[in-house]
Amino acid sequence: MIRTRCSVFISLSLAVCSIATSAKAQQIAFTWDDLPAHSVLPQGETRVEIGHQLIEAMKDANMPPVYGFVNGVQLEREPASAPMLKDWRDAGFQLGNHTWSHMNLNTSSLADWEADLEKNEPTLEQYSADSDWHWLRFPFLAEGDTPAKRADLRKYLAVHGYKIASVTMSFGDYMWNEPYARCVAKNDTAVIAQLESSYLEAASTDADFRRAMSKALYGHDIPYVLLMHVGAFDARMLPRLLKLYRDKGFTFISIPDAENDPFYASAIDPSLPDQPDSLEGAMQARGLPRPSRPKLSLDLNALCR
């Protein structure tokens, strides 16, 4: 049975409740940021082992080719993480560009940001020359702090053959990785159990939240692009997370398949007029009331201090 929190989304309550009873299978494209190293490393774990856990869970679930977005600077900071990229590619998964240093476009000049993007390309060529690595995930999801910067960026991306990896589903998975590392150091299994349950609860309520917006906008679900991060806790939880989505009626597709949907047209082709590439942005553009985001049940920052 799929649970919802209809009371959280007052203006969209009927949409949420109708989604909960829908038997139609919906689609998610998993994407992973910050390869090959995200967040702190818990005691006793390595980046390569985290990669193996993620790959094994996705292969067991018969996932289609999944994109991971690379920050090449991590290869300098943690050289031992490099095999994770080779393992990812050997498993049949794809790589895309997350800029070299995870640079925030909203707080950087466009010239500096473009240089940082290009600095990452030799790494992508090295590991992924035989596949399409011209997919961009914006660090911090920052696409430019002014209309002029955003317009100039889109021209650049179109000339250089990039497609934008939009995000239409995200429950903030990255927030659990640091508390998990602290709790591992303290061997606090009770709090780790709380982290596990709250992580799954957040994923579930966020999925309902996104589906409610899509239903309000279009009367149906779009294929969702899910933002994830290659952290240790994500690796620990991935088998259970995949089961949760399957139990909610989702099937898994690739990001190229997801972004074939008309919602993503301006992300696939940056030469087209700019359109919102998030559900929140689409709600605002249509003048629809934006629902409140689901609240976390735990103060993650306070755990295992």
Rank of each mutant, 00 (worst) to 15 (best):
M213R: 04
S214W: 02
S214H: 04
L217C: 07
Y218H: 12
Y218Q: 10
Y218E: 11
G219V: 11
G219R: 07
H220A: 12
H220S: 14
I222M: 09
P223L: 08
Y224T: 07
V225R: 10
V225L: 12
V225H: 09
L226F: 12
L226C: 08
L226V: 00
L227P: 02
M228H: 13
M228T: 14
M228K: 12
M228E: 14
M228W: 11
H229R: 14
H229E: 14
V230I: 15
V230S: 09
G231H: 10
A232M: 07
F233Q: 03
D234V: 08
D234H: 13
A235D: 06
A235Y: 12
R236H: 13
R236P: 01
M237L: 10
M237R: 00
M237A: 05
P239T: 03
R240L: 02
R240Q: 14
R240I: 01
L242F: 04
L242T: 01
L242K: 04
L242H: 02
K243N: 02
K243C: 00
K243G: 01
K243H: 06
Y245I: 04
R246H: 09
R246F: 03
D247S: 13
D247K: 08
D247C: 02
K248N: 13
G249H: 09
G249L: 06
F252K: 09
I253V: 15
I253S: 06
I253G: 06
S254K: 07
I255R: 15
I255T: 13
I255H: 04
P256K: 08
P256Q: 11
P256G: 07
D257F: 04
D257A: 15
